[in-house]
Amino acid sequence: MAKQYDVLFRLLLIGDSGVGKTCLLCRFTDNEFHSSHISTIGVDFKMKTIEVDGIKVRIQIWDTAGQERYQTITKQYYRRAQGIFLVYDISSERSYQHIMKWVSDVDEYAPEGVQKILIGNKADEEQKRQVGREQGQQLAKEYGMDFYETSACTNLNIKESFTRLTELVLQAHRKELDGVRTRASNEMALAELEEDESKPEGPANSSKTCWC
């Protein structure tokens, strides 16, 4: 059965190696937490459809390798994104310090008007905490971003943060969205891309509804 959705967004997860980007993603899309998974080599992505304001949003979330030299590959995916998660690890001061660098990369490679959100992950590891909550809030404020402390392990603020970024992207594209809404009510078959069975004439609107 093909799932339906009204609009497709691309979100991107970036941040230092080992801060838990892949775990955040697995928790959000599959509600699973694996303590043992392999390092992300290159880029990966997962999908999920959520409903925001009565709109079915298909989100394609791109997961990237954190090691700096992988930028050569990952930056190619920046320009396709409408929303970006900047992730650090609350038990690693260094990953927090590097957020600055990640922000400047976003400025350089991502499209203008891209929505950003700051995530301090591994909030369950309170005893190893090196970055205070206020520090995270402070930094987010400086860059005008929303901020969440999350834990993929205990499922803290995962759904909230993903939904929030999706909302932000939706808001940023309010104008186009109104168009989608009316069109969506007119042509129900719109963006019926999900499964193999989708008819060749039905889909193909993803490029219209996806602002890349």
């Binding site: 190696s17 080992g18 043992s36 998974h37 392999i38 390092s39 090691q67 260094r94």
Partner: peptide, 19 residues
């Protein structure tokens, strides 16, 4: 050191020799 250490547990994490 740091980069290597964080990848130790993420290399063949399900293989009994490395797990």
């Amino acid at each position: 050191q740091h980069a290597i250490l964080i990848d130790l547990g993420r290399t063949f994490p399900t293989h009994p020799y490395f797990s």
